[in-house]
Design a protein around this nucleic acid. Structure first.
Lengths: 110, 110
DNA sequence: CCAACTGTTTGATGATCGTCATACTAGGGA
DNA sequence: TCCCTAGTATGACGATCATCAAACAGTTGG
C-alpha cells in the first residue's frame, strides 16, 4: 500500500553531501519542523513561506538523497520523517548540533 | 609585531554561513589538519594536494570570514588556528561533530 | 637597496545551485 | 468515467562558487 521514494543506504552517505544539504536556510527550516521525529503531512504551512511548491519538492529531494529524510507515499499523501537514528549512527552529534544551531536566532547584520 | 587579519566578532556569525563554509571537501580537509588546535605554518604539505595556492588562500578567507579560524601574520609567516572555544560557545557540539564526520572515510561510490 | 619568498588580490571561466513556471503523473471522490 | 488534488519532473534563468593564472604587496636576507 504505502510506497517509499528512493533513498540511499545509510552507509552510502557522503559527509560532504550531508553538509551541503544542511547548508541552506530553507532546508534548515524544514529540518527544524521535522525535528520532533514525527511524520508530517505535506506540505504544512510552516514550510510554505514564500517558497514555490516545486522549490520545496526540490529541497525535499536534496534532503532525501543526502540520506537525511525518508519520504513515504500513502495514496495522495506524502509523509516525511528524519532518519535520525541512522544519521546519528554514522555522524554522531551532527544532527543535534545542527538542529540547535538552526534554532539559534541569526544576528542582525546592520 | 604580529598582525591579525580581519575576522568577524563571535556573535556576528550566521549559522547558515558557518554551515556553508563547512560544506566543502577542501575546507574540511583543512579543518581536520587544524583540529588539534595548534597554529600551523602555512602552507604545510597536507593542504597542498593538487590545489593552487590562491585557491587555498580563498578557502582560508572563507573559513576566517565565517568566524571559524583566526589568521595571525608574523613577518612573512602566516599562522592559522581554529576559534574552537568561540564556535563551541555559539554552536555547541557542531565543530566536534563535523570534525568527526570529516575524519570518517567516505564510501566508495561505484 | 635589491632580490627572493609568502601569501593576497583581482579577473576570468566553467560548474553548481536556488528559484520559478509549466507540464506531467498518480490516486481518490463524485 | 472524469475531474480534482498533491506533489514530481523538466527546463530556463540569474546568482554564487571553486578554480586557476597573473599581478601585487609586505618582509627578510644579502
Amino acid at each position: 500500500m504505502a510506497r517509499y521514494l528512493t533513498e540511499p543506504d545509510a552507509g552510502d552517505v557522503k559527509f560532504t553531501e550531508v553538509m551541503r544539504a544542511l547548508a541552506d536556510p530553507v532546508r534548515l527550516r524544514m529540518l527544524a519542523v521535522l525535528a520532533d521525529g514525527e511524520y508530517h503531512p505535506c506540505w504544512p504551512e510552516e514550510f510554505l513561506v514564500g517558497v514555490h511548491k516545486s522549490t520545496l519538492s526540490h529541497h525535499f529531494r536534496v534532503l532525501r538523497e543526502a540520506g537525511i529524510t525518508r519520504t513515504r507515499l500513502e495514496g495522495r499523501n506524502y509523509f516525511i520523517q528524519l532518519r535520525k537514528e541512522e544519521v546519528d549512527a554514522r555522524f554522531p552529534g551532527l544532527l543535534d548540533a545542527v538542529l540547535n544551531g538552526a534554532r539559534e536566532p541569526e544576528p542582525t547584520d546592520t
